[in-house]
Design a binder for these strands. Structure first.
Lengths: 111, 111
DNA sequence: AGATCACTGAACCTAAAAGTTCAATGCTGC
DNA sequence: GCAGCATTGAACTTTTAGGTTCAGTGATCT
């Protein structure tokens, strides 16, 4: 399984609505820091920090182009997050099925 | 799509390795606060807080039983996180395919 | 060259997170 | 009823997050 630090960063990056909005926006195509900052009603500096967080998590890739910085999505880390969740999801489904059976059994006994 | 606050809480809850370990542990069956705190080398109070965060996120369900508190997994929120990720994952795959085509085109032009 | 535009770095502020200690509270077992 | 155990709540400390302002830096356009 993926290293803890990687998952820390990915989930932490996704835990902020502003950053999820950035990802949504980049899903429609690349954008500069300024283009991301404007609709969010945030300073360039503030937006830069969010993009940095996403980049550190491997969710976004950036590149300096002239005096702007192009930001694009970079999806390989998403697979990690997805893998973690779906692994436990399957495991939990089984466990919850087990619990259902257990409670059904208990109810039967109570009578 | 699910409300922002819900996703904030779920992703934020998952962004801590201690809490992911709790979920892993609970995947093997219910446990008390004490049983969770001991292997983590943490105080009961500290562990209680983590469990509270998971419970607020809807990832864990707890119930007072005698003088202990039983903690179990509660998976419906996982689906929300999963749904968000997989939606964008698919979207990104398409977009990245597009980018690959773009770069291939550029390389051709550079020659 | 000089003006301007987009971003960046440093410093700062405020609020929230992660953890602690210490003092209740409320069951359980004798 | 009393001792003891598991959890809880309040208060506190230290880091980290999210955001700002203000002063550079480097590219672009006359």
């Amino acid at each position: 399984m993926v290293h803890d630090v990687v998952l820390d960063r990915v989930f932490s990056a996704l835990s902020d609505a502003t950053r999820r909005a950035i990802i949504t926006r980049l899903g429609e195509g690349p954008a500069t820091i300024g283009e991301l900052a404007e609709p969010a009603g945030m300073t360039l500096t503030g937006m830069k920090k969010h993009v940095q967080v996403l980049e550190d998590a491997g969710l976004v890739v950036t590149e300096k182009v002239g005096r702007s910085r192009q930001c694009r999505i970079g999806a390989e880390r998403l697979d990690d997050a997805m893998a973690w969740i779906s692994f436990y999801q399957r495991l939990w489904e089984r466990r919850l099925d087990g619990l259902d059976a257990y409670f059904t059994l208990q109810k039967g006994r109570e009578k």
